[in-house]
Design a protein around this nucleic acid. Structure first.
Length: 520
RNA sequence: GGGCGCGUAGCUCAAUUGGCAGAGCAACUGACUCUUAAUCAGUAGGUUGAAGGUUCGAUUCCUUCCGCGCUCACCA
């Protein structure tokens, strides 16, 4: 981008000429009488005669998205609030100075106009302008007017331009806003209290992921950007907040992909005196309600498929049943429930699957439960388009969940899958401090085995549990992924306004080391 | 990180077998007082991502690098 190129200079020149006409270059305010959407809503069905009979005076503001000059008159389309309205400027009506100003306008400029509503010969609702006020200059040219901006990199880097040019992008983010609103409303309706817990944590806990590290100078300590708020929210249940939730960012230092961004938004909530089944039903309701609030119905398009969010369409099965159900024919006879009990039989399942289907990584030293979870991802996740709740996860991959009373290798935990994505995760919260210590210790063994993502020991968390945490169910819900599903967006970057990108050449940030030295 | 693909004017895209780098929109000048992808006449705009190589000649072929996209493996 050249800020000193010809068009930029030329438009600066025009801005000076506009000032010479007595219009400030960057005025402070403009008192409009209507938004464009209000006018479209109120007057779209009024006839030409009707508008002439009782004249409607309006004052609107917007960005010029199309402009046509014809000698001593002209048209333009103003865009505001994602809507467009045509204006008609006639030299006789706006005067010499007003018309001079109109001739100095460019695509992308902001103006305010006052006038009355009428219909043109072709019937388009328009404003017959009697006064133009200049509001702000667009010094850089907008992208081409009917293809818009399609270059994906530019769309993400210059989202402001993307939003001006592509109304469907604006729509996605309005829907995302409605989604978050709906989630908050559902939580509040159930008596949950919204809280904010640390983003910077001395121990990155509550999930299994690699964290980002940062440093606090005064305390001279490293801190982790949180990978989850979980352990803090559960401390709050110890403190007597029986129903708490937080909607905020988590940070995970992992790869990027169509459903992964290093920072992502999560709704996480904890409800005392219930278990995984209680929060399962609640989460299903919340999600179904969100679909209704965002889209107005319970059926949404998802690529080639249609997702039905209505209650009766939800399926529930255990992880083991899902592996059996979705077991590929090519991999031979379906597994039996008993195949999931011993290390040896799990290993042979993996071997059968790998031989027939595709290769999944397998480390014979890892716990059988971890292998089973990997097997589930490979066998079943790809098949789960319609809302499906998978329950009973291996204890080995669930260090914070309560075990099933009759099967200690399995936990009271579930996840919701929709459109081949995990969108929520909930469980009966482990509140026995001694059991929790043992789970952390076995995670530490995994860490020693080379699993960088295994959970760290958190002594203060165990101390909190030792004061007595009520029985509780807790849930994490991926807001970005739900937004993707409800807007038919097939990459997470289309529901994040400013996704992470490599820094642009020439726009590089200051070296953090320099900054450190300056402040030291 | 591996594999595949892409990078040409501000934007959207062309360029035959390796043979003069082009169009539309945007911009500039002029005409036009109901247009709407306004129209009409004219003008300007390029280190073809960068460096190197092959060749009489490279947007085109080769190598390296940079950037982007898709995809596979790990994470939600």
């Amino acid at each position: 981008m050249a800020l000193d190129d010809d068009i930029y200079q030329l438009r600066r020149e025009k801005l000076k000429q506009i000032e010479a006409l007595g219009q400030p270059a960057y005025p402070r305010k403009y008192d409009f009488s209507h938004t464009i959407s209000q006018i479209l809503a109120e007057y779209s069905d009024k006839t030409a005669d009707g508008l002439e009979g009782s004249r409607v005076n309006v004052k609107i503001a917007g960005r010029i998205m199309a402009i046509r000059l014809m000698g001593k008159a002209g048209f333009a389309h103003l865009q505001q609030g994602g809507q467009r309205l045509q204006i008609y400027i006639k030299k006789d009506a706006v005067g010499d100075k007003g018309f001079e100003l109109y001739k100095l306008l460019d695509l992308g400029d902001h103006v305010g106009v006052s006038g009355y509503l009428f219909r043109t010969r072709t019937g388009e609702l328009s404003v017959h302008v009697d006064e133009i006020t200049f509001l702000s200059k667009d010094l850089l040219p907008l992208p081409e007017k009917w293809h818009g901006l399609t270059d994906v990199e530019l769309r993400y880097r210059q989202r402001y331009v993307d939003l001006v040019m592509n109304p469907e992008v604006r729509e996605v983010f309005l829907k995302r806003g409605k989604l978050v609103q709906s989630l908050r409303r559902s939580m509040e309706a159930q008596g949950f209290v919204e809280v904010e817990t640390p983003m910077m944590q001395p121990i990155a806990g509550g999930a299994v992921a690699r964290p980002f590290v940062t440093h606090h100078n005064t305390l001279d300590m490293d801190l982790y950007l949180r990978i989850a708020p979980e352990l803090y929210l559960k401390r709050l249940t110890v403190g007597g907040f029986d129903r708490v939730y937080e909607i905020n960012r988590n940070f995970r230092n992992e790869g990027l992909g169509w459903r992964w961004n290093p920072e992502f938004t999560m709704l996480e909530f904890y409800q005392a005196y219930t278990d995984y089944r209680g929060v399962m039903d609640l989460t299903q309701q919340i999600v179904e309600q969100a679909a209704k609030d965002v889209t107005g119905g319970t059926r949404t398009k998802w690529g080639e498929d249609e997702i039905d969010w209505a209650g009766p369409n939800w399926r529930r099965m255990t992880m083991r049943d899902a592996i059996i159900h979705y077991w590929p024919e090519a991999a031979g006879a379906k597994p039996e429930i008993s195949d999931f009990t011993s290390q040896q039989s799990v290993k042979s399942l993996v071997q059968r699957f790998n031989a027939a289907h595709r290769h999944i990584a397998y480390d014979p030293k890892e716990p059988a439960g971890k292998t089973i979870a990997g097997l589930f991802d490979a066998v079943a996740e790809e098949q789960l388009i319609q809302p499906t709740i998978i329950s009973e996860f291996p204890t080995a991959v669930s260090p914070l969940s309560k075990q099933k009373p009759d099967e200690p290798d399995w936990t009271e935990r579930w996840e919701i899958f929709v459109g081949k994505m995990e969108i929520a995760n909930g469980f009966s919260e482990l509140n026995d401090p001694e059991d929790q210590r043992r789970r952390f210790e076995s995670q530490l063994k995994e860490r020693e085995r080379g699993d960088e993502e295994a959970h760290q020991m958190d002594e203060d968390y165990i101390r909190a549990l030792s004061y007595g945490m009520p029985p509780a169910g807790g849930v994490g819900l991926g807001v970005d992924r739900l937004a993707m599903l409800l807007t038919d967006s097939h990459t997470i970057r289309d529901v994040i306004l400013f996704p992470l990108l490599r820094p642009e050449k020439g726009f590089a940030a200051e070296d953090p080391e320099d900054f450190k030295n300056e402040t030291a």
